[in-house]
């Protein structure tokens, strides 16, 4: 009975580890392949048709080709996530401080009530 349970647990662990590792591998592969596709610079044919507002400015032109787009995109989305999480932590801390104050006030009132009764 003990052996059967052990085997079942091991089987579940092996299968879940395999599924998670494969999933992670596939996910990374998809991200890397898409990043490679999009990170390619514009073709020579499209370079001529850049609309107003998207053209490199006077002093910036020579460096635009060398800039790593993937790094910029990852930084931007990382910043968005950080800002949201940071603000939620800020709200959570404010709420925790108020909860602490309320508990303290409640216990003070209870203590006075007990003393009076």
């Amino acid at each position: 009975m003990v052996m059967k349970t052990f085997v079942r647990q091991m089987y579940t662990r092996i299968v879940s580890t395999f599924v998670l590792t494969t999933g992670l591998y596939l996910f990374s592969w998809v991200i890397v392949s898409y990043t490679d596709v999009f990170a390619q610079g514009p073709s020579e044919a499209t370079k001529a048709a850049i609309a107003e507002g998207f053209k490199p400015v006077e002093n910036g032109k020579p460096v635009t080709e060398e800039v790593n787009a993937s790094l910029l995109v990852v930084s931007a989305y990382g910043m968005f996530a950080l800002a949201f999480v940071g603000y939620l932590i800020h709200l959570g801390r404010q709420q925790a401080r108020l909860a602490h104050e309320l508990v303290e006030l409640g216990s003070r009132i209870d203590a006075v009530k007990e003393r009076e009764s």
């Binding site: 999009f38 390619q40 514009p42 370079k47 048709a49 998207f54 910029l72 995109v73 989305y77």
Partner: peptide
């Protein structure tokens, strides 16, 4: 097609 991957921002 013009900006490439950075347009995702």
């Amino acid at each position: 097609k013009v900006m490439g991957f950075v347009q995702k921002i």
